[in-house]
Design a protein around this nucleic acid. Structure first.
Length: 896
RNA sequence: GCGCGAUUAGCUCAGGGGUAGAGCACCUGAUUCACACUCAGGGGGUCGCAGGUUCGAAACCUGCAUCGCGCACCA
């Protein structure tokens, strides 16, 4: 036989990957005769490379898609990538700087964009190929990219529509500014992190009352040059009489007013707040209320500008902070400097603190908010786990306008054109909205104005999420069209994504679908685990704690990685990653491989076999366990419990099938008697052919290979399209017969465990010549005789004497079938043996005490469920008998 | 500050009102036997703490502690 001992995943996985794809088996048609199953991929960044989060997320989608396909659904799993504005632009800019020493402004917008497209053409497919390596069964012919022409058309269309509806406007607002990427960010792209910083307390002298000082605390002394006022609470008696006077800002030395504003907390610090309207949202609002001047002291890149004075101009902001504190100290204006912990807001992508910055940006008032909120609340869209619905509801109820413009070049350019002759005025105008459209001063639409020469387009691009929120339908149809694909597959069935993008993406998609398609975009949202390293830290490139899934697949196979990861990924809970677990996945694949190898060694199926009811108890037992497995798996899928599915598959196959069933039928197989061999082989085929189908969604490659090798399928039909039989394996078999078989098998197996334990105690674990005496209990005495060959096989015993007492001292144990003894002819260590049995007796007595205590409690007997009371009585009886037996055994040991 | 989650064996996690579980790790033994990516056996836990409900709580309730996450935020 040329069937190798180990599963060669590299060759076999590639073989099936290529095969499935060449045969176009993943492609979907809007076939009206089959029920649909659809899911759109959360588009990874086109610049991205696969990480474990992608592996988990996409394996789950693949499992769902493959399972649906096997169940006869028409499956659309639509793949694609997004253009990842900031990340991609930053990467190409770095490349440009490294290779040519130039910035994007040196080469200009057109050349720069061409470079990005070139880069995308060359490298943009990496992650898609990695997904293919993983075995993802996406319809690759439908791959979409958020910058595709059709897709871009959708983005402009949606912008124009929302603008016309008055939901998009332009305005000068305080936004989150990223000094590294030089763009505005939305509130969602900013993360608060606790930082150990300093709280500086300084003093400003009151202009009108020299010698009177106001003490003011701040964490950001570097912005004091932009201070245009000091605020106190209107009810604060300490400062009431100073309101309306001025203080000296120390540098540049200017008199600034003291104002009263309720936004100030009396009890924080000194109760005085320095007001820097250009650099803080609250300060900005206070400034507006009191007509304070706005002085921006920072450049876009976070260095200080001329307003900060010559000493500070050009200085980096954190260096300036230290310098400002030093300067205050020199001027004897620094009262104290304390350690302090506060929240600092970081740019999620660039990992630098953002600056609140006043700038002209485009904003969206979210559409279809009530519909989107209701859809999740009433279950039209089911979140799993459903606790995320609360998080979603909270965000929806406190929803803020979305800053959608980005000061980047890579992305969908804002489809707004200004009349050239009015451009300067329009650019500076405080607000711009649908009203200006009517005036003919601007043009908003999917196409430039006809007389394009007279117009100039807005420079900014849209947030990448402003394109991906359209993903479910914009990938399926063009604007103004209702394609067959859309009609068949939208809304999609499931969305699989991480809870970290619930606001970024999930919530926005729901609103977009309601607004533009009048429906939900998906029925179910499954939130995956977040994968952490062994220490519980998030995986990140900087920490270097993220293993490369490609390396893992090279080491353990795609199937091994998929299974290993899924088995440990609880729903919606973080998971700590350990490569050991992937190794287990590979080991499982190998176990399956070898079990099938073992099947092949039994030769071809031939001859007639009795129906299941006519087969041996081990065969009925394993088929019953297979049916239980099938039901359990079904239920776990219904609850989206992917780890439970994997766990049950693993447990059934490794323990129930290989460790117990196969071992218990080896005597039959080795007998060479066709009457004994053939039913067993038929049972093996029944189990394997069903099991391969159950496992296929998790381990598609190896199962397809084994399916073919074992010849279970009809010619030309692949496992990936083969449903489970409609009937269970034990269909029509008398339940009483099954129950009896299961009880007997359980008793045999439990007895085997006792016997093996006895052997191991005497270092005879591997000895195949042991002899046992078994004194059967009455209820089992009638049938044990027929099972002696199996008992011998499983115990590794040369002989089991039934009903023949074993005289004299010998290691003994109580088993489900009766007392077991293992005569050792003088080798027995009486003291050790007595100690062992005494320990067991103590355990039994402990249990007996617990049970007796319960039964002695009158309220228990009167109030507990009668079944429980009966169970306790049974247990009391069993433990009592067991205790008596053990005492006898100990006594006989002492006699000997 | 508000909300969500976690706390069970050395580690990673299941479970869930009635005998405390799995895998890994560890210890012992096994290699002509489908598989050493294997097999057999073993040790190991007052289920975070304190109250309460109950005949009975690891599980349900209430507090608390610790850790993680999200939202908000006082400079």
């Amino acid at each position: 036989m040329d069937f190798p001992k180990n599963f060669d995943f590299n060759t076999i996985e590639q073989k099936w990957r290529d095969f499935w794809e060449e045969r176009k088996l993943y492609e979907s048609k809007p076939n009206p005769s089959k029920p649909k199953y659809s899911v759109v991929i959360p588009p990874p960044n086109v610049t991205g490379i696969l990480h474990l989060g992608h592996v988990l997320n996409n394996t789950i989608q693949d499992i769902l898609a493959r399972r649906a396909r096997m169940q006869g659904h028409e499956v659309l799993w639509l793949p694609g990538t997004d253009h990842a504005g900031i990340a991609t632009q930053t990467m190409v800019e770095k490349d440009l700087r490294a290779k040519e020493g130039k910035t994007r402004r040196d080469v200009g917008r057109d050349v720069f964009l061409r470079r990005i497209w070139d880069w995308k053409e060359k490298h943009g497919g990496i992650i898609i190929n990695q997904l293919k390596r993983l075995g993802c069964s996406c319809d690759w012919s439908r791959e979409r990219f958020t910058m595709d022409a059709d897709y871009s058309h959708w983005v402009s269309h949606v912008f124009a529509e929302l603008f016309r509806k008055g939901l998009i406007y332009r305005g000068k607002r305080m936004v989150n500014w990223c000094p590294a990427s030089l763009t505005a960010l939305s509130d969602e792209e900013v993360i608060a992190e606790k930082q150990k910083s300093k709280l500086y307390t300084m003093r400003y002298e009151v202009v009108e009352r020299p010698g009177t000082w106001l003490e003011i605390s701040t964490t950001r002394p570097e912005t004091l040059m932009g201070d245009t006022g000091v605020a106190v609470h209107p009810d604060d008696d300490r400062y009431r009489e100073l309101v309306g006077l001025h203080v000296w800002r120390p540098f540049p030395r200017v008199a600034i007013p003291i104002v009263a504003d309720a936004a100030v907390e009396k009890d924080f610090g000194t109760g005085c707040l320095k007001v820097t309207p250009a650099h803080d949202k609250v300060d900005f609002e206070i400034g507006m209320r009191h007509g304070l001047e706005i002085i921006d002291v920072l450049n876009p890149d976070g260095t200080l500008n001329a307003h900060a004075g010559p000493e500070f101009e050009g200085m980096e902001r954190f260096k300036a902070r230290r310098k400002a504190a030093e300067k205050l100290a020199e001027m004897e204006l620094l009262v104290k400097e304390e350690d302090y912990e506060n929240n600092v807001f970081f740019s999620e992508r660039a990992r630098v603190p953002v600056e609140p910055r006043l700038s002209m940006q485009w904003f969206l008032r979210y559409p279809s908010v009530p519909e989107a909120t209701r859809a999740v609340a009433d279950g039209s869209i089911a979140f799993r786990p459903d606790r995320w619905a609360k998080t979603y509801a909270h965000w929806m109820e406190n929803i803020q306008d979305w800053c959608i413009s980005r000061q980047l070049w890579w992305g969908h350019r804002i489809p707004v054109w200004y009349r050239k002759d009015l451009a300067d005025d329009l650019r500076g105008r405080g607000s711009l909205d649908a009203a200006d459209l009517a005036a003919g001063e601007i043009h908003v639409g999917t196409e430039p104005p006809a007389d394009a020469d007279l117009w100039v387009q807005d420079e900014d691009v849209l947030d990448t999420w402003f394109s991906s929120w359209l993903w479910p339908f914009a990938t399926m149809t063009a604007v103004g069209e209702r394609s067959a694909t859309l009609q068949k597959f939208h809304p999609t069935t499931d969305l699989v994504t991480g809870p970290d993008i619930i606001f970024f993406w999930v919530a926005r998609m729901i609103m977009a679908a309601f607004e533009f398609e009048g429906t939900v975009p998906f029925r179910n949202v499954y939130f995956t685990s977040i994968i952490r390293d062994k220490q519980g830290r998030k995986m990140s490139k900087t920490l270097g704690n993220s293993p490369d899934p490609l390396d893992l697949m090279a080491k353990y196979g795609a199937d091994g990685v998929r299974f290993g990861l899924l088995r440990i990924a609880p729903s919606g809970q973080d998971v700590k990653f350990d490569e050991k677990q992937i190794e287990e996945g590979r080991n499982f694949a190998n176990k399956l491989w070898n079990a099938c190898r073992f099947r092949l060694m039994q030769g071809d199926r031939s001859g007639s076999v009795p129906p299941p009811a006519g087969r041996g108890i081990y065969q009925i037992d394993i088929l019953a366990k297979l049916d239980t497995l099938t039901a359990d798996v079904e239920k776990a899928y219904g609850d989206y419990q992917f780890n439970a599915v994997a766990q049950r598959l693993y447990e059934f196959f490794w323990s129930e099938y290989c460790d117990w069933f196969l071992e218990s039928v080896k005597a039959d197989l080795q007998s060479g008697d066709p009457v004994r061999v053939q039913p067993v082989v038929a049972t093996m085929d029944e189990v394997l052919s069903r099991f391969l189908r159950l496992l296929h969604p998790y381990m598609p490659h190896i199962t397809e290979e084994l399916w073919e090798t074992l010849g279970y399928g009809e010619p030309g039909v692949f496992l990936m399209h083969t449903p489970l039989p409609e009937q269970v394996a034990l269909h029509g078999v008398d339940p009483q017969l099954v129950a009896t078989a299961r009880e007997r098998v359980a008793a045999v197996f439990a007895t085997v465990t006792r016997a093996r334990h006895l052997k191991a105690e005497y270092q005879l674990g591997a000895n195949r010549n042991t002899r046992f005496h078994l004194q059967p209990v009455a209820e089992h005495a009638s049938w044990i005789g027929g099972e002696l060959p199996v008992l011998r096989q499983l115990c590794g015993a040369a002989e089991i004497l039934l009903g023949t007492p074993c005289d004299g001292p010998a290691p003994r144990a109580l088993s489900d079938l009766g007392e077991l003894a293992m005569p050792l002819e003088g080798l027995i260590d009486l003291a050790a043996e007595a100690a062992r049995l005494t320990k067991e007796l103590a355990k039994t007595e402990d249990e007996l005490k617990k049970v007796a205590a319960k039964l002695g409690n009158e309220t228990f007997v009167s109030r507990a469920n009668p079944e429980i009371v009966q169970e306790m009585r049974d247990r009391e009886k069993a433990f009592t008998e067991r205790g008596e037996e053990l005492q006898k055994m100990i006594a006989s040991l002492r006699q000997g």
